[in-house]
């Protein structure tokens, strides 16, 4: 059980933060289909930062500090990379799906190009000595599930999630951002700078997606940046739609997906009530079956809930001052 909670958290966290990233862009009116590419960029830059720190012995060899520093770099690089999307979508009023697709192609190409030139291989593996795990075994069983062997990034992401939810719903800034995604002309008429708000929304989105990309490769992909995040960006996009463009829905969606995905990875060693019986293993079904479950579950839930689904009204439409 403890194991299951720990692993579920590991699977959930990147999805949660990247889905939040998608939400920030879309609530401001920009479709960010480039989440996957931005994740790849963040992962690459974060891995590069880690590599650099380890080579030069920065931060006194403290794994945790290096990790936090790399997360910061990943977020900054994601934010900068997303400016490309903002520029094409906001200033040049280009098609946002095309711009996003271009970024999705650009990120792996750039990352692999640089990795191959400087490291002579197709991937950048962060040195294994980096211990990113908080180890504390003197805790009651329940707390242990959350606190022992947890990554510091987990807590950072949960804190960010809370802060960002409040930002979007309880502050003046959040209200303005949402107005730009619903009815930019109305927002403009009361003096909100729509272009600026959309830039901010997409840049926040880029930072969060870059961060999520680095957390994904550090916690799940064995610390390897290889020009791919296994389609996590697209999954996060799906979870954002699944969560109805709302933080609560996104949290529920990514938890559900994380849990089911985690069962798919670990069904062979899963012993839920600790009685030594591996119930799922004994069923004798192949791993493919468990891999399919999360995707089918999302489809089934969507089938019944989609009538209530509501995308931001103005998303995907370049803001035109003259439009009625």
């Amino acid at each position: 059980m403890t194991f299951l909670i720990q692993q579920t958290l590991v699977c959930t966290i990147p999805l949660l933060i990247v889905a939040m990233a998608g939400m920030f862009a879309e609530r401001s009116g920009i479709i960010n289909i480039a989440l996957d590419g931005i994740m790849i960029m963040g992962a690459f830059c974060g891995a590069l930062a880690t590599y650099f720190c380890q080579q030069n012995g920065l931060f006194g060899g403290s794994g945790q500090l290096v990790y936090i520093f790399a997360m910061l770099i990943a977020a900054i690089s994601g934010a900068i990379f997303s400016l490309l999307l903002s520029f094409s979508a906001i200033n040049l009023k280009a098609d946002q799906t095309i711009g996003g697709t271009a970024l999705n192609l650009l990120a792996p190409a750039l990352a692999l190009f640089i990795i191959k030139i400087f490291f002579m291989q197709d991937k950048l593996v962060m040195p294994k000595e980096t211990k990113f795990v908080i180890l504390n075994n003197d805790l009651p069983e329940f707390l242990k599930a959350f606190l022992s062997r947890a990554y510091i990034s987990t807590f950072i992401v949960i804190a960010l999630y809370i802060v960002l939810s409040i930002l979007l719903y309880k502050t003046r800034f959040g209200l303005r951002l949402r107005a730009c995604g619903e009815h930019p002309q109305a927002a403009d008429s009361v003096g909100i700078n729509v272009h600026r708000m959309r830039y901010i929304g997409t840049t926040i989105s880029g930072a969060l997606a870059g961060l999520g990309g680095y957390i994904y490769i550090a916690t799940q992909a064995g610390g390897t940046a290889s020009g791919s995040v296994a389609g996590m960006g697209f999954l996060a996009l799906a979870i954002m739609i699944f969560g109805n463009w709302k933080p609560v829905g996104i949290a529920f969606g990514s938890l559900l997906f994380g849990l089911l995905r985690c069962i798919g990875y670990a069904y062979n060693s899963l012993d839920i009530n600790g009685d030594g019986v591996f119930a799922l293993k004994d069923l004798g079904l192949p791993n493919y079956f468990y891999n399919i479950i999360p995707y089918v579950a999302v489809l089934v839930v969507l089938m019944f809930t989609s009538k209530k689904s509501r995308a931001p009204k103005a998303e995907g439409i370049p803001y035109d001052k003259g439009a009625r």
């Binding site: 289909i33 996009l237 799906a238 891999n291 489809l299 969507l302 089938m303 995308a311």
Partner: peptide, 14 residues
């Protein structure tokens, strides 16, 4: 069902 085709496409891919 009115489900966004992008999400269904991604799910059916995997």
């Amino acid at each position: 069902f009115g489900v966004n085709e992008v999400i269904v496409c991604i799910m059916t891919n995997w």
